[in-house]
Amino acid sequence: MSKKESIPSLSSKITRDAFPASKKIYVNGSIHNNIKVAMREISLSDSKPMFSNGEFSKEKNHPLPVYDTSGPYTDTEIDLDVKEGVPRIREQWIFDRGDVQRLSDISSDFGKERLLNSDLDHLRFEHIKKPLCAKEGANVSQMHYAKKGIITPEMEYVQSERIKNYRNTNHLLNRILASILGLKFQMKLRRNLFGMKLPEEGQ
């Protein structure tokens, strides 16, 4: 049994619907001004008028920010093209560190073999950039930076999930310092050297 291979095109089904009564919100970083933490905010209707203490009152229900992993796909204001991929929001953060280089070519034998095989042209993702790699002797893991006491944009970004009042930037900053530096850093942080994407965070 074999199948017919097909790649995504403009007419492909890629779900881009926003969630009902929801919008994407983006909260700026306070240590790093080039991060925008994406969340989903669900709007709510008012409570019905209640008769209490001798008068009618109508309670407003504030919009609820929730954790959201859907990325730009549920933000209808962002244009996406499956042939281009999602925006590379980490690329600048990575280059700002100064410890990464873009290689002039891919390094693996198999990767080269696939690249030179013209039978695969119809299957290829077109907009591949050359790979990124640590400069000689550098260690580019988030754990490495954390051990050195460096708060990377990635760390500030993920810290948002522990913040109740995420709009208070001072609070945010204190929590990051206390929590990231204080924690035994035994966790995996989001890292993608191609710097394309981060899941949305919030609560």
Binding site: E5, I7, P8, T69, S70, G71, P72, Y73, V82, E84, G85, V86, F110, G111, R114, L120, L123, R124, F125, H127, I128, R190, R191, N192, F194, M196, K197, L198, P199, E200
Partner: peptide, 26 residues
């Protein structure tokens, strides 16, 4: 929060390229 691409078959390399470039998560 993360997606694992467990593709098998002969076009694993190309499949992964498409998935990584379009994924909002690790």
């Amino acid at each position: 929060d993360t997606v694992m691409d467990l593709s098998t078959g002969k076009n694993i390399h190309e499949t992964r390229e498409w998935i990584i470039r379009n994924s909002p998560v690790p």
